[in-house]
Write a protein that binds this DNA or RNA. Sequence first.
DNA 1: GCCAAACTACGACGAGCGTCGTACGATAGA
DNA 2: TCTATCGTACGACGCTCGTCGTAGTTTGGC
Lengths: 117, 117
Amino acid sequence: MNTATSTRDLAHPTRDEIRLEGVLHALSDPMRLLIVREMAVAETELACSYFTLPVTKSTTTHHFRVLRESGVIRQAYRGTAKLNGLRREDLDALFPGLIERVLEAAALEADRLGTDG
Amino acid sequence: MNTATSTRDLAHPTRDEIRLEGVLHALSDPMRLLIVREMAVAETELACSYFTLPVTKSTTTHHFRVLRESGVIRQAYRGTAKLNGLRREDLDALFPGLIERVLEAAALEADRLGTDG
DNA sequence: GCCAAACTACGACGAGCGTCGTACGATAGA
DNA sequence: TCTATCGTACGACGCTCGTCGTAGTTTGGC
């Protein structure tokens, strides 16, 4: 048990480094879009283990990394868990209203297709 | 020279078949985002040859097909040319405000990075 | 009928993605 | 200290993507 960010300093892009193409690509995967949607609903930060995706843990880790490296989410260790949160402020500053519309569109589509919930 | 849609009936997804993931993926490529941006500025439908992209014609054709098959654009032959137009109505009906935000975000980013125009 | 222009089809190639499994590292609690 | 939990690293596999080049098809005009 060392200091807070002991084990591993996770690399996040700064706000300036976030690219629209990267964000769109990150959101264009069904699994990742699902993750982001669940994350948007919950106001608190969620551990990776909270999400029960139909893929293995390795794959889940991969998706979280893509989301973090594209600037969509923020990750931080807390004990054995890793907390995840949307970078709403940064995203809204760079791309006003975009995330909100994507989330809205995803909800509408889920409704329309009867998939997900 | 046969009837109007002689040579080739271009396959377009119906409104119901358009998927958010597909649209986001289509927009996540720099070339395609560029195409869509130019298309959004011009109100009229544009021929493929209008766009001067830093890739070959084969590649351009490929990108236009991706855009069409994902439901982002509409294509129709007119003589030797092929006219392209955004499917704004369908997209707005399915994903209200989404395209507008993406275009806005792309413009902001281009401004921010000093790229493009 | 012939040619130029616009776009397509097809095959190829290298790169990247999404997925998995196994082995590993770090933390918390008993 | 031992162990269970949470997440990572690494390599692998198949598939898709973005790109190109060449050859071909359709259309319009001369």
